[in-house]
Write a protein that binds this DNA or RNA. Structure first.
Length: 605
RNA sequence: GGUGGCGUAGCCAAGUGGUUAGGCAAUGGUUUGCAAAACCAUCACACGCGGGUUCGACUCCCGCCGCCACCUCCA
């Protein structure tokens, strides 16, 4: 298997991945998570999905991944042109609009985020990980760790307290500030847009602790006011001598939270830190400076890198940043109507966006709604190193692509069926195909998560399989391959949603005895109001009107089989109008029926 | 102004100093009672423009043009 390589923002080079774990087994990964003052948009999710694909690829390479993604519930400033703490916090703004306290607002949006993340199959919210609180730390629950770090920064001379009671990191004390982002210090100083705050020693200095009476979330560093009891107890343990007396009640700065949470959950140094490209500066630049200042964190350059073994003064060895998602080649904008949350696409009407529902309907989305697996595909189909231009058309292409994969997958499942083990051995042509496709898939993903090439390998394999008649063992191998692809892609509906009915089976069901026994165990059928009459007609081999069978909301296998039998009876009598009517009716009820040389294929959609 | 990046056939999107990426769409055909699915073919003598290096450049170098992002909370 090929070796995983990642584009490291820190060195701007493609580097071989090598975990810090001396056993080479465990990987620690921290992803900058959502700020929960609104619903997460598709750009947010592109970034989170990049992290999701990365951790799945790591697992594919045999690593055990401990992945942490935080919840930023402290909030950030909203008045972007007003420097520092004079603006209103975004969470506070949301709270004012929702008429409740900021903690509840944050929880509301966090819950919404989790629901969306689950729908999009973020593995960190699947299974056991979903309930593991340690993997989803909240910023408000780590004020103790943040203040402890701030105190260390002050004690070490990396930070200073100003008369207002705020604390700033002194950038001049960390000469490597700017290394990650490539920002030249002089450029920043020249930036006239940064309103110089008198209290700062240098305009580039950034806030670690802020004081603003208007802010709704407040913690007193010198008493338990504003604290959850557990958090306060922990703070006292972490800082038995308290923090600098000049620090006044307030709230943490923008960047300290991730340093604190990463350290608390994953330890002093980690393998991978991910985020969006906008995080590079200033957020991650500041994280690096803080962590070094407080704890002198450093990691060795990985094997094969020019600085192999030499210390990098950062707490993460690999910095991986996803490029932005654009709409109409611009950043998303609410004003231009190019701003989409995930739930806008899942159910536009419920989000008050009937216009979007119409556009989606026009793009071929039934009911004007985008299935989550289609959105997932659309957001991972491009390589993360390139900006992605999102559009109705790209969504429609994703839908078609997913459908092509799903159809192939369904047919393989049908071919394999429930049959147990078989001594039959797959032919070399299929074994070679599967082996080659999986190798190409892995090679592409290991090449800096090149998902377009990985998908090319998938579709090449699908195309070749579509040209073949597969035996049982071959279908089983091919199915195994598709499932392996899906371990990373996770876009397939893996429930048994389709079936194949042979002509022989249908023929036997048309016998009155068989038909009656088939009908008898159908609960819905038995509840039909005029069932005696219908019963007689069925026994006579007659076709009841489809509506007479309503309400049949759940088309289970037996129900579908019954209708297939009735339809085939009509077709045998060359009554194609009736046959087609049944097929159309089934479609309305979410079941697609296809005639194949072997028999009849049904797909629940 | 500073920094980083991008411009590949109708659309999306990999990749390479010299043999078909892949997907989507469209059109024609095979198959089908009709569909669906699938296959085949076409669109494809594709690589922003102009120079240069080279036996040969879409790929390397130089110069343009256009677009985007970051530099400010932002995935």
């Amino acid at each position: 298997m090929s070796v995983l390589k990642l584009k490291n923002s820190y060195t701007r080079a493609l580097e071989v991945f090598q975990p810090l774990d001396p056993r080479g087994e465990c990987v620690t990964m921290y992803s900058c998570g959502p700020t929960v003052y609104s619903y997460a948009h598709i750009g947010n999710f592109r970034s989170f999905l990049m992290a999701d694909v990365l951790r799945r690829v790591l697992e594919r390479n045999g690593y055990e991944v401990r992945h942490v993604m935080n919840i930023t519930d402290v909030g950030h400033m909203t008045e972007d042109h007003v420097a520092d703490a004079t603006g209103e916090d975004k969470l506070a703004k949301a709270a004012r609009e929702l008429g409740t306290d900021p903690f509840r607002v944050a929880r509301h949006f966090e819950d919404a985020f989790v629901a969306d993340a689950r729908a999009l199959k973020l593995k960190i919210y699947q299974g056991g990980e979903a309930g593991d609180e340690t993997l989803h730390p909240r910023a408000t629950a780590h004020i103790a760790e943040m203040l402890a770090a701030i105190q260390r920064l002050i004690a070490g001379g990396f930070a200073y307290v100003v008369p207002s009671g705020e604390v700033y990191f002194e950038v001049a004390k960390f000469p490597e500030y700017g290394k990650l982002s490539g920002k030249v210090i002089d450029d920043l100083e020249a930036g006239a847009r940064v309103e110089v705050r008198d209290e700062k020693r240098d305009p580039r200095d950034f806030a670690l602790w802020k004081v603003d009476a208007k802010h709704l979330m407040q913690w007193d560093p010198h008493s338990n006011v504003g604290w959850e009891p557990d958090d306060w107890r922990r703070f006292v343990q972490l800082c038995p001598d308290g923090v600098d007396a000049r620090i006044k009640p307030g709230f943490p700065g923008w960047h300290i939270e991730c340093s604190a949470m990463s350290r608390a959950r994953l330890g002093p140094v980690i393998d991978i830190h991910t985020g969006g490209e906008d995080n590079i500066f200033p957020h991650h630049e500041c994280e690096i400076a803080q962590s070094y200042g407080a704890y002198h964190t450093h990691v060795p350059g990985p094997h094969g890198a020019p600085d192999e073994g030499a210390p990098r003064n950062t707490f993460a060895r690999y910095w991986v940043h996803g490029r932005f998602l654009l709409v109409n080649n611009r950043k998303m904008s609410k004003r231009d109507g190019t701003f989409f949350t995930a739930r806008d696409l899942f159910n536009p009407v419920a989000e008050g966006r009937a216009d979007l529902a119409r556009d989606l309907e026009a793009a071929g989305f039934a009911g004007g709604r985008v299935p989550a697996n289609v959105l997932r595909y659309a957001l991972i189909a491009n390589q993360y190193t390139q900006p992605m231009n999102f559009s109705m058309e790209s969504l429609a292409q994703a839908r078609a692509s997913v459908e092509r994969l799903q159809i192939r997958y369904d047919k393989l499942r049908e071919a394999v069926g429930d049959t147990g083990d078989s001594s039959e051995v797959a032919s070399d042509r299929v074994l070679t195909l599967v082996e080659g496709a999986l190798r190409d898939f892995d090679d592409a993903l290991n090449d800096n998560l090149n998902t377009p090439n990985a998908l090319a390998a998938v579709f090449k394999a699908v195309g070749e399989l579509n040209q073949m008649e597969l035996g049982l063992a071959e279908a089983r191998e091919a199915l195994r391959m598709m499932e392996s692809f899906n371990d990373v892609l996770d876009v397939l509906d893996t429930t048994a949603r389709s079936g194949l009915i042979t002509r022989e089976q249908v023929q036997s069901w048309l016998e009155p005895e068989s038909l009656r026994s088939k009908a008898a165990h159908l609960k819905h059928w038995a509840e039909a109001p005029d069932r005696e009459q219908l019963w007689e007609r069925i026994e006579a081999g007659q076709l009841p009107a489809f509506d007479e069978l309503a309400p049949v909301e759940q088309m289970d296998g037996a129900m579908i089989e019954l209708f297939v039998a009735i339809r085939q009876n009509a077709r045998k009598a060359k009554d194609f109008a009736t046959g087609d009517a049944i097929r159309d009716d089934l479609k309305k009820r979410g079941v697609q029926l296809e005639d194949t040389p072997q028999g009849f294929r049904w797909v629940r959609g």
